[in-house]
Simulated scan of single mutants.
Amino acid sequence: MENLYLAALQMVPGIGSSRIKALVNYFGSARQAWLVDQGDLFLSKCLDNTVCNNLLSYRDKIDIHKLAEVLLKKGICLCCLKDGNYPVLLRNIFNPPYILYYRGTLPHNDKLIAVVGSRKATVYGKNAAKMLSSGLAAAGVGIISGAARGIDTAAHQGALELEQGYTLAVLGSGVDVCYPPENAKLLARIVERGAIISEYAPGVMAHPGHFPARNRIINGLARGVVVVEAAEKSGALITADFALEEGRDVFAVPGTIFAANSKGTNRLIKQGAKLVDSAADILEEYGWQTTIPGEQPVLKLTTDEQAVYHLLNYESPVGIEEIVTKLNVPPATVAYILLQLTLRGLTVEHSGQRYTCAAREGIE
C-alpha cells in the first residue's frame, strides 16, 4: 500500500520527487504524510501553504482503494525509488522519479542503450536507427527510447525484429495513454517484450512540458545515448545534454552536411561524441560481446533479386517504373521480387509503390 500513497502524493500539483522525499523523511512514510492532520502538515514546513492546500484538496478527491483497482484493471504496476527492482542507473541520477508507473517487465540489468532522434526522420535516419537497435538487441542490449514518431519508433521496431529483443519506452504521458495514437500496436508489442514506463499518473495526456522531464529518464536508464538524427535545436540534443551532465556516453550517427536533421548530430561529433556507423562501435566501447552465437545466417539472393536489390538505396525511395525501365523486365516480375524482398525484411515499401533497402548486415 505504501507505493499507492506515494503515487497519490505525486498526483498533487506542486509535489515532485524532492518534496515526496521530504514528506516521507519527516512523517516516516507516505501513508502517514497522506493521512496527517492539517495542523501537523502546515507545521512540518515540508510544503508551502499553497501546496499544503493542494494536498488537503486532493486527499478528498483520491480514494486509495479505487486507485488500486484502476491500476490492477489496467495492468499498471508501481515501482518506488527504494524498491529492489527500481532501475539501478536511474536511481543514481540527480533527480530520479520517486515513483514509476510501468506496464511490462522492468530491465534486470544496466546493459541498456538509448537511441533517440528527430520526429521528422528521413528514410536514412530510420534505417540507421533500426540497424543499430537490431544489432545491439542481438548482443543482448536493451533499447530505450521515447516511442515518439520518427527515430524513436524505428529504434523500438529494430529491437523487436529479434525474438529476444528487449526495449523500453519512456512516455511523456500516462502509461495507459497511446501517444502518438498510431503507435498503439507498437506500444502493445513493447509491453509484451519489454516495458512502458512513466512518472506521470494514468490518464495524464502528453504535453510539451513533459518531454524534457521524460528525456532525463531516458538517459538516466541508459549507459549511453545514441543520437541518430537531430536538428540544431531538438529534444534529442536535450537528451544528450542530460546524458553528459549525468556522466553518460554520447554517440552520434553522422549525416549529410546539407540536411537540417544532421546539423545537431554532426555538431555533437565535433564536440567529442563518438561517431558510430554500426552496433559494433557501441559494443566495443563497453567490452560487450560483438560476435553473437547462432547469429542469423547470410541471406543469399538470386540473380534476379540481386539485380532489383542493387538498384535500391537506403535514403531515396525508388519506384517500380524506374526499376522496370532499367532492367527491361515485366512490371509483374519486379513487383513479385520486391514483395519477396520485403517479406524477408530486406526492403521497405513507401507510398506510391516506391522502395528502399532495409538497413541490415549479412546480405549476398
Rank of each mutant, 00 (worst) to 15 (best):
R216T: 07
R216A: 02
I217C: 05
I217S: 00
I217W: 00
I217H: 02
I218A: 02
N219I: 07
N219Y: 06
G220M: 00
G220C: 06
L221H: 03
L221Q: 02
L221T: 05
A222Q: 06
A222G: 03
A222R: 04
R223L: 08
R223F: 00
G224L: 01
G224D: 03
G224Q: 04
V225E: 02
V225L: 07
V226P: 01
V226A: 02
V227H: 02
V227W: 00
V227L: 05
V227C: 01
V227N: 04
V228T: 09
V228W: 01
E229M: 10
A231N: 13
A231G: 15
A231F: 06
A231C: 11
E232G: 13
K233M: 10
K233R: 14
S234Y: 01
S234E: 07
S234N: 08
G235W: 00
G235M: 05
G235K: 04
A236P: 07
L237I: 09
I238N: 01
I238C: 06
I238M: 06
I238T: 09
I238H: 05
T239W: 05
T239K: 05
A243P: 05
L244R: 08
E246L: 12
E246F: 06
G247N: 10
G247I: 11
V250F: 07
F251L: 10
F251H: 09
V253H: 05
V253L: 08
P254K: 10
G255T: 13
G255H: 08
T256L: 15
I257H: 11
I257T: 15
I257M: 09
A259E: 15
A259S: 15
A259Q: 15
A260E: 15
A260M: 13
A260Q: 14
S262G: 13
K263V: 15
K263I: 14
G264I: 14
T265I: 11
N266R: 11
N266L: 11
R267H: 14
I269Q: 08
K270W: 10
Q271M: 13
Q271Y: 05
Q271V: 12
Q271S: 15
G272W: 04
K274R: 14
L275F: 09
L275K: 10
V276R: 00
V276D: 01
S278R: 08
A279T: 11
A280K: 12
A280Q: 10
A280V: 15
I282S: 04
L283Q: 00
E285K: 12
Y286F: 08
Y286C: 08
G287F: 00
W288L: 03
T290F: 01
T290H: 04
T290C: 03
T291W: 01
T291L: 00
I292P: 02
I292A: 06
I292C: 02
G294E: 02
G294A: 09
E295T: 12
Q296R: 12
P297L: 09
V298L: 08
L299C: 11
L299P: 02
L299E: 07
K300S: 12
L301P: 04
L301R: 03
L301C: 03
L301I: 03
T302Y: 01
T302C: 03
T302L: 03
T303V: 13
T303E: 11
T303Y: 02
D304S: 11
E305D: 05
Q306A: 12
A307E: 07
V308I: 08
V308N: 01
H310L: 11
H310Y: 10
H310V: 12
H310A: 12
L311C: 11
L312V: 03
L312E: 04
